[in-house]
Amino acid sequence: MTESKQRREFLKFSATGLALAGAAGLTTLNAQQAAAQAASGSLLPTVLERGTLRVGTGSTNAPWHFENDAGELVGMDVTMGRILAKALFDDETKVEFIKQDAAQRIPNVTTGQVDITIQFMTMSSARAQVIAFSRPYYVEGVALLTRPDAQEKTFDQLLAKGSGTRVSILQNVDADTAIHEVLPDAQVLQIDTQANVIQALEAGRADAAAVDLSTVRWLVARTPDRYFDSGKSWRSMLYGAAMRQGDPDWLQFVNTAFTIGIFGHETALYDAAFKEYFGAQVPERKPGFPSV
């Protein structure tokens, strides 16, 4: 054997090993996923045929999507997924939650990794240009969290204290404007992370923490001895689920399921979740005029 031939043989061996190692890692092709992608037309029959719904959501933000003390994924977003599964299969457990990062909410929908993203997604016209939003299932807003043992804990008391009121808020370009819309004289403390915004309140460096309305409700419902809801919320934002564009049947189905689940004859899941995660009763639904 000549030298260069030996060398080629040796390298051929390495190449085979390489191919094998690669193949071992890359063979987890899910047949169902492949079928779902190959099928043309609407997702609705594909999902029905598959027998489970694939929902993309997160696992790190209470009360939207988080793991409870038993390690189960729960939250308002998760409940919306269950409402959808119930509408599809009359069984709220036939749903697979695919954990995803917030940055993956749109790409996972457009590439078909999930059937729908339900992950506290603010409906905006910019996003609506790339994905299709469902009807809103919650109206988020900014609210003021205070301490139950503080001198000034209601919104009127905070307003009356004028420039003596200090409000912590997550750093952003329009943080000052947002606070001064409702508390024109307050001092604004811009802080780097959401957890530290709340920490500032606890440490007494702020009289109120400006956070999402849902966060205020969740913290107050869970630990009423530590947190208090000042009773003010403003700046509405709509939360909707995201789907792929160009599938009117699927979009229409999801909207119908959500509307029935929030306003119709099957509101038990929504009501229970609203009570558990926001500590509040859903307003009474009156038959007659369709206020949906």
């Binding site: 696992s59 790190t60 209470a62 988080f66 793991e67 957890a195 709340i198």
Partner: peptide
């Protein structure tokens, strides 16, 4: 870790 923080808000 982030999942637990997301539940307890104590990082």
């Amino acid at each position: 870790i982030n999942q637990v923080i997301g539940r307890t808000y104590e990082p």
